[in-house]
């Protein structure tokens, strides 16, 4: 038997309180893409240290022998994995599964997921943060960038929804 999901408004208030506690304790909001960035920087530094040291991008995070994995967002994302797993365990939703519309194959879904991830990863660096770091956190602190990024993300997804409808409905 599947447990139903939480009321979305209640979940929103709880998520807002999680965000508020991040502000209250650490003076910063939530994030996600920044943690993956730390993994990218660490990987490149391990494989090609000279390339990483000489690049204007990687070297920012490697100054003075700093370990980019020792960052707030990396620990936060490890928590997300644990929290998501715990919730899935409580609700009986732990299962290896490729979720997709019956109109497309699993293979097509995985290709689209990979492409979407590439775009989101690239866009998150250009936009200085993703839905959680820039849009949600940015809006809560009333930052102009937060509102702009939020409207660009949701506006574009709505505008393109028609063209990708067969993948979802």
């Amino acid at each position: 038997m599947k447990t139903k999901y939480m009321n979305p408004y209640l979940a929103g208030v709880l998520l807002g309180l999680v965000l508020l506690s991040a502000f209250y304790f650490s003076g910063r909001g939530l994030g996600a893409s920044g943690a993956v960035k730390s993994v990218v920087v660490t990987t490149v530094d391990a494989v090609a240290p000279e390339h990483a040291g000489g690049s204007g991008f990687y070297s920012k995070y490697l100054k003075d022998g700093k370990n980019p994995l020792n960052s707030w967002l990396v620990y936060e994302i490890l928590g997300v994995l644990v929290g998501g797993f715990l919730s899935g365990a409580v609700a009986g939703r732990l299962k290896f599964k490729i979720e997709h519309s019956p109109k497309i194959t699993s293979k097509k879904r995985l290709i689209l997921a990979g492409m979407g991830g590439i775009l989101f990863g690239f866009g998150s660096q250009l936009g200085r943060g993703c839905t959680s770091g820039s849009a949600l956190t940015g809006m809560a602190v009333l930052s102009l960038a937060g509102f702009v990024t939020m409207m660009a993300i949701f506006g574009t997804a709505f505008a393109l929804a028609y063209f990708f409808r067969k993948n979802w409905i």
Partner: peptide, 23 residues
């Protein structure tokens, strides 16, 4: 911020997740 957001929006409708939700 605008162009990054547009690229992320395309990633959202194609891939169905954003970074936090995918993790």
């Amino acid at each position: 911020a605008i162009v990054g957001g547009v690229i992320m929006g395309a990633g959202f409708i194609i891939g169905g997740f954003c970074p936090g939700t995918s993790v």
